[in-house]
Design a protein around this nucleic acid. Structure first.
Length: 518
RNA sequence: GGGACGCUAGCUCAGUGGUAGAGCAUUCGGCUUUUAACCGACUGGUCCCGGGUUCGACCCCCGGGCGUCCCA
């Protein structure tokens, strides 16, 4: 193979494929020196953030002769002749490695040229395990004075620019793993999200609620106005829907005698994608027997403030540069009052649809011509004019019956149900009722929904007869509550888009070379 | 569904109707206190895709894809 080499023509080495090929060669060389580039395990004694904290007061130039073993991904390499500084990142944070030739060669007597191999065979992105001691450098950077290193995983693909990171939004979502490696705030969001859901569960469990899982696959979608995803069970030859709510099954559990139940889980709605909507999202629904919507308001306020305080350490937060005070009590206002306050329209004075329509039009609100009931008109005006103004946490109470088919009629106001929604930063966060327990009333309302479905409304659903049967056995008075977890995470973690609160949001597939033109 | 904007090297971005640019990363050489290390040298391109106009298109026009924002 010793062909006469023509005048050295430098190999290209900058494209992605070439970088990858170079790194594969390095992986082979690691094998040659007896180091598996894909190791089996590593035992760390410490993590980066804890070390940074523990030795925060160590003076520059000082060393601590305590053995430390740590693993992480190389995020930066600064290599001089016989000395190198790497920054490695573990889940908790990062710490510098102080790598000196004599120290490493002494610490790894079985591997000749250990320092040279380190320089030649490691790249930014590799996952390394090291053993050494603690030292704060003369320039003041807490470091591990490394005696031994082990390649744990050889990375084949280059990370984004160390300074600018990954900013391409689509790429951040498509390759969330890269986003997580290089954007610490993204890791922080998902860590907080976990604390939020864990905090909610702990809060409810402390009140003796139990979590019960209900079916995702359902033969009748129900519990909300939403278009479901359709699927099919092959051996049963049965069409199925993915659930659009957990409501109707959790209520069956209340009928069955559980008095405090909840489920925190994934919901699927076959609707558009926006900064506020993902087709699969997470909700929690909570049902408490013998409670009403007033009780649920108290629960909502207390639960969210408790969790926020424990996760964020404060109730005074900032969402997209707007200060938000989560400190209780939150404002409570009826839908009638907020509409009147915002638009001047007093729906309590309208005794028929025509006068209301005229007044609405006079107030400059359009697109309401097709609305056939007073309640729906009120709701439309609320959605158009009020929702976006509700920045600080606000409970809006007492909704029209016709848009609330699962809520109990208000005990003193005709045409109204006992229902509230919680709004903050202009968005709905939670929805709650005194649950409708009268099976005859419930049947009438569900049959009205079924009629709408028959008329072509694909957000309406057939009557769930088994649910009505359950109600006929008798459901105790019950307060129910649903909270959009993704939106709560958005609020508490200052996410502009719901996609920033969901680790792997739904995306259109990237076009392939075949499907490029069509 | 409508509108505006964007898509150029692995990453972040310039750019012009006439040979495609920078920084970082990569590769090579040097370097024992760096931390966006530094110094020197090299390399790296389907300018999102398809069509059109043109002597010539990354640029202009048409269509499409993906994305961001706004509106419905």
């Amino acid at each position: 193979m010793s062909k006469q080499q023509s005048p050295e023509q430098p190999e290209p080495h900058s494209t992605l494929a070439e970088i990858r090929a170079t790194r594969l060669v390095k992986a082979d060389k690691l094998r040659e020196i007896g180091m598996n580039p894909y190791a089996y395990n590593w035992v760390s004694t410490h993590q980066a953030a804890a070390l940074q904290l523990e030795y925060a007061d160590l003076a520059s130039g000082e060393e601590v002769d305590i053995p430390v073993s740590i693993a992480g991904r190389i995020l930066a390499r600064r290599v001089m002749g016989k000395l190198a500084f790497f920054s490695i990142q573990d889940e908790t944070g990062s710490i510098q490695l102080f790598l000196s030739k004599p120290q490493i060669e002494e610490g790894m007597p079985d591997l000749p040229d250990a320092f040279s191999h380190l320089k030649q065979l490691t790249d930014v992105g590799d996952i390394l395990g090291v053993k050494g001691t603690i030292k704060r450098t003369e320039k003041g950077e807490l470091s591990i004075l490394v005696n031994e290193y082990v390649m744990l995983t050889k990375s084949l693909l280059p990370l984004p620019d160390k300074w600018h990171g990954l900013t391409d939004v689509a790429k951040r979502y498509r390759q969330r793993y890269v986003d997580l490696i290089v954007n610490p705030s993204v890791r922080d969001t998902f860590r907080k999200r976990s604390l939020i859901t864990a905090g909610i569960r702990r809060y409810l469990e402390n009140l003796d609620f139990i979590e019960i899982e209900t079916p995702v696959l359902q033969s009748e979608a129900g519990g909300a106005d939403a278009r479901p995803f359709n699927t099919y069970h092959n051996t049963l030859e049965m069409p199925l829907y993915l659930r659009i709510a957990t409501e109707l099954h959790l209520k069956r559990l209340i009928v069955g005698g559980f008095e405090k139940v909840f489920e925190l889980g994934r919901i699927f709605r076959n609707e558009g994608v926006s900064t506020r909507h993902n087709p699969e999202f997470t909700s929690i629904e909570v049902y408490q027997a013998y409670a009403d919507y007033e009780d649920m308001m108290t629960l909502t306020e207390d639960m969210i403030t408790t969790v926020a305080q424990s996760v964020l350490g404060t109730l005074e937060i900032t969402y997209q540069e707007t200060p938000i005070s989560l400190t209780a009590p939150w404002r409570r206002v009826t839908m009638h009052d907020i509409v009147k306050e915002t638009t001047g329209l007093d729906f309590s004075t309208f005794d028929n649809l025509e006068t209301a329509q005229t007044a609405v039009k006079t107030a400059g609100i359009h697109g309401c011509n097709d609305i056939k009931t007073l309640g729906k008109l009120l709701n439309e005006v609320f959605e158009q004019k009020c929702e976006s103004t509700l920045i600080q946490p606000t409970f809006v109470l007492d909704y029209p019956t016709e848009i609330s088919p699962l809520a109990k009629p208000h005990r003193s106001k005709p045409g109204i149900v006992e229902r509230f929604e919680l709004f903050a930063v202009g968005r709905e966060l939670a929805n709650s009722f005194s649950e409708l327990t009268d099976p005859i009333d419930q049947r009438e309302r569900l049959e009205a929904q079924a009629t709408r479905k028959a008329e072509g409304d694909n957000e309406a659903h057939d009557v769930d007869e088994d649910f009505l049967t359950a109600l006929e056995y008798g459901m105790p008075p019950t307060g129910g509550l649903g909270i959009g977890i993704d939106r709560l995470v958005m609020l508490l973690c200052d996410c502009a888009s719901i996609r920033d609160a969901i680790a792997f949001p739904l995306l259109k597939p990237e076009p392939t070379e075949q499907s490029g033109d069509d």
